[in-house]
């Protein structure tokens, strides 16, 4: 029952939401969907709580068993507790809470993103080699788009930005549509498997 109940709840909820979406039940149906939206929002908040509990359990385990690099878990736990305390006392948009978020969390985020730019450059330098036709097409497209995305491209080869637009609009769009359609069909298939109880990995019991 411990395993069947979550599967039943998921199946019943999914069928209910799909029925409300595809069949017109009038004002009662609209009210039910509105109510379901509120339920989703409440469930979402619980998911955050669950995330926080899991986070504490994982890092507390690392610290208490002194696993490798456990000191980072101490930093994570201290940051979590401090942020929670400050936010509870000072408020979500409070001066100290905002200061901490903007000057620590956001700065770290920006720095990591900026470093990514350097990694992308070095990865391109090391791996973009003209080894075969496919690699050649990839390399040519990359160079063309890099030139097209910066004004210097038009300065060196007038009309370069139009070529870049064409690559994005035609071959790229065609590829992206295929990927999106494939991903969409895959998502449908996965959802149907979950509704029918064929896919059970999310319950922690394997398929």
């Amino acid at each position: 029952m411990k395993r069947q109940l979550p599967i039943l709840i998921v199946a019943a909820t999914a069928i209910f939401v799909m029925a409300m979406k595809f069949v017109n039940f009038g004002p009662a149906g609209a009210a039910a969907i509105k109510e379901a939206d509120v339920w989703i929002q409440v469930t979402y908040e619980f998911a955050f709580l669950l995330g926080a509990i899991n986070f504490v359990r994982l890092h507390y385990g690392n610290v208490s068993r002194q696993r490798p690099k456990w000191i980072y878990s101490v930093v994570s736990l201290v940051a979590l507790v401090l942020t929670c305390l400050v936010t509870l006392i000072d408020g979500v948009n409070g001066t100290i809470a905002m200061f901490l978020y903007q000057n620590i969390a956001n700065r770290i985020d920006s720095a990591i993103y900026a470093l990514l730019g350097f990694y992308v450059c070095s990865a391109a330098y090391r791996s973009f080699k003209l080894k075969n036709l496919e690699a050649g097409i990839l390399l040519a497209s990359a160079v063309l788009l890099m030139l097209a995305q910066a004004p210097i491209g038009d300065a060196i080869f007038p009309g370069m930005s139009k070529w870049g637009e064409w690559i994005l609009n035609v071959p790229n769009s065609a590829g992206m549509r295929g990927i999106r359609l494939g991903a969409g069909i895959g998502a449908y298939a996965a959802s149907i498997r979950v509704i029918l109880g064929l896919e059970r990995s999310w319950t922690g019991s394997g398929t």
Partner: peptide
């Protein structure tokens, strides 16, 4: 800055190749 960044990467791609 974007122009110079992109040109630098392209030069390194050429050198690597």
């Amino acid at each position: 800055a974007q122009s110079m960044g992109h040109i630098t990467v392209i030069i390194f791609l050429i050198l690597g190749n």
